[in-house]
Design a protein around this nucleic acid. Structure first.
Lengths: 153, 153
DNA sequence: GTTGAAAGGTTATTACG
DNA sequence: CGTAATAACCTTTCAAC
């Protein structure tokens, strides 16, 4: 379903999806047309789920990134779903993972400053279903590519 | 430096950066040429740092995502840098944050299975500088857009 | 300095072998 | 799949704001 050419193509597109067909052709080892046909097919198949520009938060006044571990009071399906919906709707939430382990949710937040974070916590964590939360402030975004390695099966 | 048009443009491009100039024009309220000129300027200025395709990990045999909190033995600059370099080089590491708080690093990993994770931990956490680590296994990627909200200053 | 419209050059898409 | 023709698009120019 995914061969070596697709693997190379996906690696290239995860680094830069604005390359021309000719540029992709060099890296993949196929013609321009073949590369673009494959890219289109990978999008239709849902292997590529999105194509996005990545914005530098600090360039738009969001110099503060934090990871927050949230623990819920009790794991009731309904309450979990409403919390998930709120996280999806909140623009400051870059990522939200529902996890097993000591925490129930792991959030990645992008904030203007600490006052912003203060406001966020009172607005979203005042919820009686939130037992508690722990904040980890980012000092360095060591790696934020989010790329998935693709190996031929 | 960034006006309302840029804000709209960045919002559109963070959702889909493969839209044509005409499609962007509709959403932003400027001509096609103006939108593409601005997009190019935002890239030169470093506001847009990358343009990438997003791959669905489960479609390429990576159904297991985990968040790992890593605590280092002692915060010695040299040792931290070598750990950072290793995380940057490891393909399974989608993200790596250096943080304050209970942990020193927060990693997001994409794995094929638990055996894969086992191998990863012994390879990277056997380091005598790693005091310990805690694993949170993802059950649901509630939100993974990673988009930065842009508001006019 | 930035815009919109049109010209010109480049790129993606499609048909065919 | 690759080649080549077609269609769509981006880029640049230029006059006007």
């Amino acid at each position: 379903m995914i061969d070596g050419f697709d693997a190379k193509l996906l690696a290239a597109l995860q680094r830069d999806n604005q390359q021309t067909g000719a540029q992709l052709a060099e890296k993949v080892g196929l013609s321009s047309a073949a590369c673009l046909r494959r890219a289109q097919r990978l999008r239709e198949e849902g292997v590529i789920v999105a194509d996005v520009s990545v914005v530098a938060p600090e360039k738009v006044g969001r110099g503060l990134t934090m990871i927050v571990l949230v623990e819920m009071e009790r794991d009731q399906a309904e309450l979990l779903e409403s919390f998930k919906a709120r996280m999806r709707a909140a623009p400051e939430v870059m990522q939200c993972w529902y996890v097993t382990g000591r925490a129930d949710f792991v959030l990645t937040l992008t904030m203007r400053d600490m006052a912003d974070y203060q406001a966020f916590t009172t607005r979203h964590f005042a919820d009686p279903n939130v037992r508690g939360y722990e904040t980890l402030v980012s000092m360095d975004a060591v790696k934020r590519t989010g790329a998935t390695p693709v190996s031929i099966d």
